[in-house]
Amino acid sequence: MSRFNVEDIDIDYKNIKLLKRCLTENGKIIPARLTRLNCCQQRRMSMAIKRARFLALIPYTVS
């Protein structure tokens, strides 16, 4: 399996559909070894998820 090239994609806290690809059903962030994002992209992704959580666009936890 090849790495996914998401360099041209803007990882943004507003793009909720993209963020949800990196969240589990319970709302936890999926680790980089499963998302296959590189270090830089994973950091940007987790930052974006945390911003979206703060703005109540996505939940912190789903019980």
């Binding site: 090239n5 998401v6 507003k14 559909k17 690809r21 059903e25 999926i30 499963l34």
Partner: peptide, 30 residues
């Protein structure tokens, strides 16, 4: 306009902005 507005207007093709980040066959359930 931002992504939020673009998606609400329906301008963007979902396939273009949403690559499959988690490949099929990987179990992401906790």
């Amino acid at each position: 306009p931002t992504v939020q507005m673009q998606s609400s207007m329906g301008d963007l093709e979902n396939q273009e902005i949403l690559p499959d980040l988690v490949p099929e066959g990987i179990d992401t359930t906790e």
